[in-house]
Simulated scan of single mutants.
Amino acid sequence: MAETTLHIAGRVYDLRCRDGEEAHLAHLANLIERKARLAQQNTPGLTEVRTLLFAALFLADELNDLKREAIGRQQTLALESGDEPAARALESLATRIEKLRERLVAASPEA
C-alpha cells in the first residue's frame, strides 16, 4: 500500500491507496479543492464541513448531468441507428462514470 497526502479546503489528509494510484488521487483531490474554493467564494464563512458538503454536491451535480447526457445519447443512438456497438460503448461510459463516483466517495476525507 502506498501513502499520499491530499490538500483539500485548507486541510491535509494522509491516505493509504493502492500502489500507483497516488497521482490519480491527487487529481481527484484537485477537483474537490476547486469545488471547495468555489463554495467558499460564493458563500463566505462556511464551516469546513459545509465547504466539503457543497464541494461534494457540486461534483455530484456534475456527475448526475454527465450520466443523464450519456443515457440520452445512448437512447438517441439506439433509436436513430440501431447501432448496438455504439450503445454498448455508451453503456460502458456510463459504467465508468459510476465507478468514478464510487472512487470519489471512497477517497472522501470521511472514508
Rank of each mutant, 00 (worst) to 15 (best):
I97Q: 11
A56R: 03
E22S: 07
A29V: 08
Q40I: 07
R68H: 04
E3F: 03
E80H: 07
Y13K: 08
G82K: 10
R73T: 06
L28G: 02
E62F: 00
T76R: 13
I32T: 14
R68S: 09
A78W: 02
I71F: 02
I71C: 02
D83M: 07
A86L: 14
R37D: 15
T95P: 01
D83R: 08
A2F: 02
A94W: 03
F54R: 12
P85T: 12
T76G: 04
G10A: 11
E98S: 08
H27S: 07
E21W: 08
Q74T: 07
H24N: 07
R37N: 14
A9N: 10
I97Y: 01
Q74K: 13
S81K: 12
T76A: 15
A106H: 06
T51H: 04
G72F: 03
I97E: 04
L100I: 09
A70T: 07
D14P: 00
E48Q: 15
F54Y: 11
L57T: 12
E62P: 00
D65Y: 01
E98A: 13
A107Q: 08
A39S: 05
H7A: 11
K35I: 04
E80S: 12
P109R: 13
T95G: 11
Q40G: 03
A26K: 14
L38C: 05
K35Q: 15
P109N: 10
R103N: 06
A89T: 11
L93H: 02
I71H: 05
A111P: 01
L104Q: 03
D83C: 12
A26L: 15
E69M: 10
K35H: 09
S92R: 13
I32M: 12
F58L: 08
A94S: 10
V105N: 02
A2Q: 13
H7V: 13
A107Y: 03
L59V: 09
V105G: 00
E98Q: 13
K35V: 08
L46I: 04
K67P: 00
D14G: 04
R18F: 00
Q40S: 09
K99L: 13
T76E: 14
V12F: 00
S92L: 09
L93P: 01
V105W: 00
R68E: 09
T76N: 09
S81V: 06
D14T: 13
G72S: 12
A56T: 11
L6D: 08
V12L: 11
L100Y: 02
E91F: 05
A36G: 08
L79T: 10
C17L: 05
E84C: 01
E3I: 08
C17V: 15
E21D: 15
R103H: 08
T47Q: 04
T4F: 03
A106Q: 12
L59W: 01
I8L: 09
A9R: 10
C17P: 01
L100Q: 06
L31F: 01
T4L: 15
D19L: 08
A87P: 00
G72Y: 03
A23C: 03
A70D: 02
